[in-house]
Every structure is written in C-alpha cells, then in structure tokens.
Design a protein around this nucleic acid. Sequence first.
DNA 1: CTGTATTCTTGATATTATCAAAAGAACGCC
DNA 2: GGCGTTCTTTTGATAATATCAAGAATACAG
Lengths: 141, 141
Amino acid sequence: MASPRDVRERLRDVGLRATRPRVLVYEVLREAGGHRSVDEIVGLIRERGQSVTRMSVYNVVSDLQAAGIVMCADTGPGRALYEVGETWHHHFVCRVCGSIVDIPCVTGKKRCLDSPPAFGGTVEEAQVVFRGVCETCAIET
Amino acid sequence: MASPRDVRERLRDVGLRATRPRVLVYEVLREAGGHRSVDEIVGLIRERGQSVTRMSVYNVVSDLQAAGIVMCADTGPGRALYEVGETWHHHFVCRVCGSIVDIPCVTGKKRCLDSPPAFGGTVEEAQVVFRGVCETCAIET
DNA sequence: CTGTATTCTTGATATTATCAAAAGAACGCC
DNA sequence: GGCGTTCTTTTGATAATATCAAGAATACAG
C-alpha cells in the first residue's frame, strides 16, 4: 500500500513536517483502518515495536485533522475517534455493542445536506449519525 | 410553566419514581433550556439553593434518557450534553466558539433520513450535526 | 403506617484530555 | 555533509469527565 516514503510526501504536500510520530500515526490509521481512539493508536504503534507518547498522538491527530487528511468521526460523546479522510461518509452506531459502521454519503460531499433554512451562520459540513441496532446484536436478542 | 406537581406526574407517567433529584434535574433542564453538561446541571441546581451530587445527576440523566423524556445531544466527542426531548431536531455547532444552535427537523421524526441502502441493521434514529461558523463568529473574523 | 424495592449518596478510582517547559529533530541553506 | 533556526516531541503534572461499589435514605404499594 502506502510506503513510508509515500506517507512522508503526503505529509509535506499538506504543509507538515514528516516527523516520526506523524508518519507512524498516519500509517497505522491507513493500514488498520476503522475508527480509532488516541489510546488505540498508541497501542497499534506499540505493536509495531515503535514508541510514541499519548501526548504526541494528541498533537499529531490534531495537526493531521487541521491539515485535512484525518477526520474526527462524529459518533456522539465519549472518546474522540479518528480515521483517514478519504471520502465523505456518515456513521452508524449500534446502541447495544457500540460498533461503528461507515455509511457512504449519497452525494460524497461535505455539505451533503441543504443548509438549514433561515440560519445565519455558514455550514461547512453536515455529518449524520444513524443510531440503532446492528445486525449481529439484533440476532442475539 | 411546569409546576413541581406536573413534573412529578410526568415522571410517573413514564414509569419513574418521582424522587427529589429527578424532579430537580428535569425542572432545571426544562426551565434553563439549552444543552447542559452534568456539571452545569449540578451548578444550576445549586443556584436554586438545592444540593445534589454529581453522581446522582449521572444516574438521573441516564434514567430520564432511557425513559425518553431527555435526550443526549449528538454534538461530537467531549462532555455529554443533555436537553429535554420535546420535538426531534438537529444541531449546528460553531467550530470557533463551540456554541450550539437547534436546527428544526423538516420531518420532525427520529428516522428523518432514509435508512442507508443495503444496510443490515435497524436504524432507530438519524441525527445530523451541522458544523461551520456561526453568525457572530463570522462577523468578528 | 409499615415493608420492600428502588434510588441516592459517599468516597474511591478509572478514563480521557490538556498544560508548560525543556530536550530533540526536520528542513533550508551554504 | 554540517549548521542553525524553527517546529515537534517528550516529560511530568494536572484538569476534566465518567464509573464503581456498598451502605443510607426514600418513594410508593398495600
């Protein structure tokens, strides 16, 4: 997939220095996929025999998010979950097991819903959270 | 508005005992309005000269939410924010000042969006988070 | 009024996130 | 390739948010 060199280039393309923690976080998010908390990211990096501090990961995800190559999944209160920002999509959250499923966006654009009528501000994106029971949990009940 | 007696009835209507902390939390949420964290609720109750522990408020909002008369606003990671659940609506969150504005739902129903195509689970509700810059912050920039 | 099941409180603890300052590394430049 | 400036990371402390367990208190039925 993406070699370390590719990742370094990608980082510089968006105006970021290609530091070791940034490369590791981005690689891990790309390759492990899914929606990951800061602690999970630290763990995944440790599994590769590398070491980064929690604080570094907080800094890194914040930078990557500001640069637009990583996004924070809007899945309600609790720990923040990050994922690589490839295509715009939404999320389904199971209220039983907490699992999260990506839901493709019909339009694929950040402002996929019409702006609310008679609203003064500027809407930059609209993210939908679908809540319910996933297939697995529905069977077990 | 709602007298303490009304609140007690409302609680029993949904199958809950009308205890002092529950009455206080529900009254405060109704009268103060807006989206309130557990700590804010504790503070608002203290301002009325009453006393409840943080833990009680955690228990109470959990019960009220399960009973369907209070809802947790889906406004992304961070502290959980609660509000009285009158009519189904969505939220706009300003990325500058963090302020939250209610956005009326066109349909007014919890399943206001079509369920995602080819999705196995059961969708019970769809909540939208609009993100952008509010009118006030847009002017100041 | 009394009994019982529910709920509240208390104190400890876990989890998640942030702050500030010093040590370290990346990149442009020569 | 080495140097220096600037941006990052690390470290250790701390804040904010949420949960657990067990005893005390209370709401409600009868």
